[in-house]
Protein backbone atom coordinates (compact mmCIF):
# COMPACT_ATOMS: atom_id res chain seq x y z
CA UNK A 1 0.00 0.00 0.00
CA UNK A 2 1.32 3.43 -0.89
CA UNK A 3 1.62 5.94 1.99
CA UNK A 4 -0.62 4.06 4.49
CA UNK A 5 -0.41 6.80 7.14
CA UNK A 6 -1.41 9.58 4.70
CA UNK A 7 1.78 11.48 5.54
CA UNK A 8 1.80 13.19 2.18
CA UNK A 9 -1.78 14.44 2.44
CA UNK A 10 -1.22 15.70 6.00
CA UNK A 11 1.90 17.54 4.87
CA UNK A 12 0.01 19.05 1.96
CA UNK A 13 -2.72 20.27 4.34
CA UNK A 14 -0.01 21.74 6.61
CA UNK A 15 1.30 23.76 3.63
CA UNK A 16 -2.24 24.96 2.88
CA UNK A 17 -2.90 25.97 6.52
CA UNK A 18 0.37 27.90 6.50
CA UNK A 19 -0.73 29.73 3.34
CA UNK A 20 -4.11 30.56 4.96
CA UNK A 21 -2.28 31.97 8.00
CA UNK A 22 -0.11 34.05 5.65
CA UNK A 23 -3.21 35.48 3.98
CA UNK A 24 -4.76 36.43 7.35
CA UNK A 25 -1.56 38.14 8.58
CA UNK A 26 -1.16 39.85 5.17
CA UNK A 27 -4.69 41.27 5.47
CA UNK A 28 -3.95 42.62 8.96
CA UNK A 29 -0.63 44.03 7.72
CA UNK A 30 -2.48 45.76 4.87
CA UNK A 31 -4.76 47.44 7.38
CA UNK A 32 -1.94 48.55 9.72
CA UNK A 33 0.29 49.68 6.83
CA UNK A 34 -2.50 51.59 5.08
CA UNK A 35 -3.40 53.39 8.30
CA UNK A 36 0.16 54.81 8.39
CA UNK A 37 0.30 55.57 4.64
CA UNK A 38 -1.74 54.15 1.81
CA UNK A 39 1.38 52.96 -0.05
CA UNK A 40 2.60 51.02 2.99
CA UNK A 41 -0.54 48.91 2.70
CA UNK A 42 1.19 47.46 -0.36
CA UNK A 43 3.46 45.34 1.86
CA UNK A 44 0.44 43.53 3.28
CA UNK A 45 -1.07 43.17 -0.18
CA UNK A 46 2.20 41.67 -1.39
CA UNK A 47 2.08 39.14 1.44
CA UNK A 48 -1.51 38.21 0.59
CA UNK A 49 -0.49 37.63 -3.06
CA UNK A 50 2.60 35.61 -2.03
CA UNK A 51 0.51 33.47 0.34
CA UNK A 52 -2.11 32.89 -2.35
CA UNK A 53 0.69 31.81 -4.70
CA UNK A 54 1.96 29.46 -1.96
CA UNK A 55 -1.55 28.00 -1.67
CA UNK A 56 -1.68 27.26 -5.40
CA UNK A 57 1.87 25.86 -5.33
CA UNK A 58 1.06 23.55 -2.39
CA UNK A 59 -1.89 22.08 -4.32
CA UNK A 60 0.33 21.41 -7.33
CA UNK A 61 3.18 20.14 -5.13
CA UNK A 62 0.81 17.57 -3.60
CA UNK A 63 0.25 16.03 -7.02
CA UNK A 64 3.93 16.22 -8.03
CA UNK A 65 5.01 14.61 -4.75
CA UNK A 66 2.75 11.64 -5.36
CA UNK A 67 4.75 10.77 -8.46
CA UNK A 68 8.06 11.52 -6.72
CA UNK A 69 7.32 9.26 -3.74
CA UNK A 70 6.11 6.40 -5.92
CA UNK A 71 9.45 6.64 -7.75
CA UNK A 72 11.29 6.37 -4.39
CA UNK A 73 12.72 9.91 -4.49
CA UNK A 74 13.22 12.01 -1.33
CA UNK A 75 10.43 14.55 -0.70
CA UNK A 76 12.92 17.02 0.86
CA UNK A 77 12.44 20.44 -0.70
CA UNK A 78 15.04 22.84 0.76
CA UNK A 79 14.24 25.65 -1.68
CA UNK A 80 10.57 25.74 -0.66
CA UNK A 81 11.53 25.68 3.03
CA UNK A 82 14.09 28.46 2.43
CA UNK A 83 11.56 30.64 0.53
CA UNK A 84 8.88 30.20 3.21
CA UNK A 85 11.39 30.66 6.07
CA UNK A 86 12.90 33.83 4.60
CA UNK A 87 9.47 35.09 3.49
CA UNK A 88 7.98 34.65 6.97
CA UNK A 89 11.03 36.35 8.54
CA UNK A 90 10.73 39.33 6.19
CA UNK A 91 6.95 39.52 6.70
CA UNK A 92 7.14 39.42 10.51
CA UNK A 93 10.05 41.89 10.48
CA UNK A 94 8.07 44.24 8.26
CA UNK A 95 5.02 43.83 10.51
CA UNK A 96 7.13 44.73 13.55
CA UNK A 97 8.54 47.86 11.86
CA UNK A 98 5.14 49.01 10.56
CA UNK A 99 3.52 48.42 13.96
CA UNK A 100 6.29 50.47 15.58
CA UNK A 101 5.72 53.32 13.09
CA UNK A 102 1.95 53.02 13.70
CA UNK A 103 2.44 53.29 17.48
CA UNK A 104 4.80 56.28 17.17
CA UNK A 105 2.59 58.21 14.72
CA UNK A 106 -0.61 57.31 16.60
CA UNK A 107 0.63 58.61 19.98
Amino acid sequence: MFDPLLQQERTSLAWERTAFAGIVVGSLLTRVGASVHVLLGGFGLLQVCASAALLVWSGRHYEDLHVQLRAGDTPTHPRAAMVVGVGATVATGMATVLALVFVVTDS
Binding site: A14, R17, T18, A21, V25, L28, G85, T92, A95, A99
Partner: peptide, 15 residues
Amino acid sequence: LAWIRSALALAAGGL
Protein backbone atom coordinates in the same frame (compact mmCIF):
# COMPACT_ATOMS: atom_id res chain seq x y z
CA LEU B 1 5.41 24.57 8.91
CA ALA B 2 3.97 24.44 12.45
CA TRP B 3 6.77 26.79 13.58
CA ILE B 4 6.00 29.14 10.69
CA ARG B 5 2.30 29.13 11.59
CA SER B 6 3.19 29.83 15.23
CA ALA B 7 5.20 32.83 14.06
CA LEU B 8 2.32 34.03 11.87
CA ALA B 9 -0.19 33.54 14.73
CA LEU B 10 2.02 35.66 17.00
CA ALA B 11 2.24 38.31 14.27
CA ALA B 12 -1.55 38.28 13.85
CA GLY B 13 -1.99 38.69 17.61
CA GLY B 14 0.56 41.50 17.71
CA LEU B 15 -0.93 43.39 14.76
